[in-house]
Design a protein around this nucleic acid. Structure first.
Lengths: 115, 115
DNA sequence: TTTATATATAAGTAAATGATTATATAAATG
DNA sequence: CATTTATATAATCATTTACTTATATATAAA
């Protein structure tokens, strides 16, 4: 049982749009491997904290990522139960683990205690 | 030889964005089966001719579709030689041939001589 | 309980998007 | 050549997007 219902083309367009931003696309690639907290994304993407938060909010509101709070941090991970998991994987499969930008991000990864 | 080079995540985001509009998404689905002229799209989507033309222009400018002129018509088809053909297929595979909206479009298809 | 840290939210803004209407172009037809 | 038909392009506009700065909230630490 792969899925309960296929998404409509309209729904697919919506999810594709959510993933059409380069930052969100790479956030999804990252969380598909492991969880990250907001401050780690801020470090890796070298973007403002509100900007990262807003991208995460969008991803979460469309059900693509999950949030778990631990201490003062909020960790984000891929929602593998999402209706959109099929498209997510279809698109993620297009991004190589050797992608230059992705490698750059990984190299900038710092421990959770961002201080 | 599947492809000469993998696309960067930035390029993938760009192509994903081009396909993130519901009209363009279905145009690609349609041309992946056979060629259509502009007036057929106008009929099927019940959209204005300039709007359709602009969507086609965008798809063509990103190399996703090809244009061939025959008589007074311009036919559009999938550019199977596109760098983006991998993502295109990955996303198209998510859209069922039984998709409601897609079937609707097919049912509204009229012969090329639109007059 | 004050202060620092992590994150979210609000408000504002410039740029991009997708439509519309009007007009231009180019081929076919009379 | 004048007219029709098919399509493209230009100009305009409302909406959405992704950022910024400023502020709020919530947890942890001192």
């Amino acid at each position: 049982m792969n899925h309960t219902h296929r998404l409509s083309s309209e729904e697919i367009a919506t999810y594709v749009k959510v993933m059409s931003d380069p930052t969100r696309l790479l956030i999804i690639k990252l969380v598909s491997k492991k969880e990250y907290c907001v401050c780690q994304f801020v470090d890796m993407f070298e973007m403002s904290q509100p900007s990262i938060s807003q991208h995460l909010k969008k991803l979460k509101s469309f059900g693509l990522v999950e949030e778990t709070r631990r201490g003062q941090w909020r960790f984000y991970s891929l929602n593998t139960a999402s209706d959109a998991i099929g498209i997510v994987h279809a698109i993620m499969n297009q991004i190589s683990d050797q992608d230059e930008r992705y490698i750059e991000l990984i190299n900038k990864e710092r421990p959770v205690d961002c201080g």
